[in-house]
Structures are given as C-alpha cells and as structure tokens.
C-alpha cells in the first residue's frame, strides 16, 4: 500500500514527518520480511551445504558449516544412485493431472453451491468436509484393497485418482468461499450486456476469483507432490514411485547417504519453484489490478 499510494502534500499535520515515517515503515517492514525469509531459507542453505559434502565429512564431529572439500559430483552421481528421473516424472505427472482433475470436478460444485440455495446445500458442503477428517493412515487399508480390486496398484492412474480426491474438499471449499464473495450483481450486469451464464462465469467470475483458483492449484499440486503414505502403499516398482517414496530411501538403517538425500530434495524443489514463479503474479495480480470497482 505504502509504496503504491501517491504522495499527498497534506496527509496529516506535519506532512514532512509523515513522509519520513512512511518511508521508515516500509524500510522496517522490508527488514522484517528479509529476516523472516532468511529464517525460512536457512534450513535450505544447510541442506545445500550438506549436499555438497563428501561422504566422510558427513559423520565428522564437530560438524563444520561449510564443506572442506566441495563435492559437486554428488549432484551428478545421484542420478545414477536411483532412478530419480523416472521418480520425478511420476511425481510431476501425478501432481499435474491430479490438479487438473480436482479443479475440473470442484469448479462446478463450488460455483453451484455458492450461487444457488437449495435443500441439502449445507449437507453437501459438510459431507465434502467430513471426507477430510479420516486419517490417510486409516484409509490406506481400504484404498489398497480397492486398488487391487480395480487393478490399479503400481499405476499412475491410481495415484492420480487418490491425490485428486484427497485435495478435492479443499478446492471445493476455497472456491466456494471465493465465488460467494464475488457479488452476484457483477454477473447480472454481464447478463444485461447479453452474456450467457457460461460466458458470465468465464469472463467475469473466474478472472475475479483468480487468487482463489491459483491458491487451489498450488494447494492441490503441492498436496499431490507431497503425498507419502498412499504412494508408499500402492506402488512397489522403484521406477513407478514418486519422489516422496524414493527420496527417503537414501537414509535408512542400512545406508545413510545424506548428501544424496539433500541433493535430490534440492532437485525436487525446482519444479515447484518454477510453478510458483510462473503462477505467483496471478496470485498477486488478480484483484489489486482494480477489477472489482
């Protein structure tokens, strides 16, 4: 806000102080922002530094922050140590397709429940929410049996279906919230201009709820990208497992390749960062552009 507002000559009494105070406020906020960002990033630095340590330095005590010998080869060798490329493909495909399915399924339901009042509307939303209350560790037995019955164990489709369903309730709820907060009058104005229902939805409501849509996309994608228990249960071949199942395999009671674990984890962050960088401006853009006026 402070950065965008044009300086006004007489904001309050003592206008010179006001401008100074505002600049100081921005500086302090930025400082706090950087500090918080550093705290959140610090564990990655540790991760990156450890990923560059050779085997023998990992067990050294006391530990050194920086590697004594920078072993960049770890990032190359890790591709040979496990079928990482395959795992990454599985994770990407599952997350992307699950996101598409969850959105496609949630959108109509969320829109309809937000725009229409009908008997059982509250019950429907509650029922959707209730499915979020069962622990995945408990569902896993039933899901496994089902996957065996449908012959979907060890398949991408099985993973996609489960992940789409797990994140569906959140999509329905968050989109429902966004659609509800957009005045119906805006759509009605579009009708008056001759737009049909679908056109009003696509041209008016969807752009306005873009931050909500983006939130739903990020949430589902990351949820699917992170899913662990079910993937651990219904996949068995190493080249059909997502990264979440493959990566912890580097540190077990038999072998402790922390450097590979962290190297892979860092590699695995890249797609999510790309997604985020690509999508962030929509999250920010949306309404601040001033479309709701």
């Amino acid at each position: 806000m402070s950065g965008r507002s044009t300086p006004r000559p007489k904001d309050r009494a003592g206008s010179g102080d006001g401008a100074f105070a505002r600049r100081a406020k921005v500086a302090i906020l930025a400082g706090v922002g950087y500090l918080v960002a550093f705290v959140f990033i610090a564990p990655y630095l540790e991760m990156a530094l450890t990923a560059l340590k050779p085997d023998r330095e990992l067990t050294k005590s006391p530990t050194t922050l920086l590697p004594e010998h920078w072993d960049f080869a770890n990032f190359v060798n890790v591709w040979k140590a496990a079928p990482i490329w395959k795992n990454m493909q599985v994770s990407l495909i599952v997350a992307a397709v699950a996101t598409l399915i969850a959105l496609a399924v949630a959108l109509p339901a969320a829109y309809y429940t937000a725009r229409h009042r009908f008997r059982g509307r509250g019950a429907f939303l509650l029922l959707v929410l209730v499915t979020q209350m069962f622990a995945p560790t408990a569902l896993v037995i039933g899901i496994y049996r089902e996957m065996v019955a449908l012959d979907l164990t060890d398949t991408l489709f099985g993973l996609i279906l489960v992940n789409a369903a797990f994140n569906l309730p959140f999509c329905v709820w968050i989109l429902h919230g966004y659609f509800s907060s957009i005045p119906k009058a805006l759509e009605e104005a579009a009708y008056l201009d001759g737009a049909g229902k679908v056109k009003a939805l696509v041209r008016v409501t969807l752009p306005l709820s873009l931050p909500g849509l983006v939130t739903a996309v990020i949430y589902t994608f990351i949820g699917a990208w992170n899913e662990y228990v079910v993937a651990l249960t219904i996949t068995s071949s190493p080249d059909r497992q997502p990264l979440t199942v493959a990566v912890p395999g580097f540190v077990t009671s038999y072998q402790q390749h922390w450097q590979y674990l962290f190297a892979t984890s860092l590699i695995a962050i890249v797609p999510v960062v790309i997604l985020f960088v690509f999508i962030e401006r929509y999250l920010i853009g949306g309404l601040t552009a001033g479309s709701v006026k």
Partner: peptide
C-alpha cells in the same frame, strides 16, 4: 508479503517454498 518493498517477490517465494517440500523429506532435514 502484502506490502510493497524491494525484493518482495524473493521474500514471498522463499517463505512459501518450505511448504513445497514433501513432509517426509522435511522431517529428514
């Protein structure tokens, strides 16, 4: 994150990325 300041995009990204690490991996970290 909502405020406008230089490097805001960087701060936003760095704060949000922990969420993107699989829980199993972040637990190991």
């Amino acid at each position: 994150m909502h405020q406008a300041f230089r490097g805001r995009g960087f701060v936003r990204a760095s704060i949000l990325v922990p969420w993107a690490i699989p829980t199993a991996v972040s637990a190991l970290l």
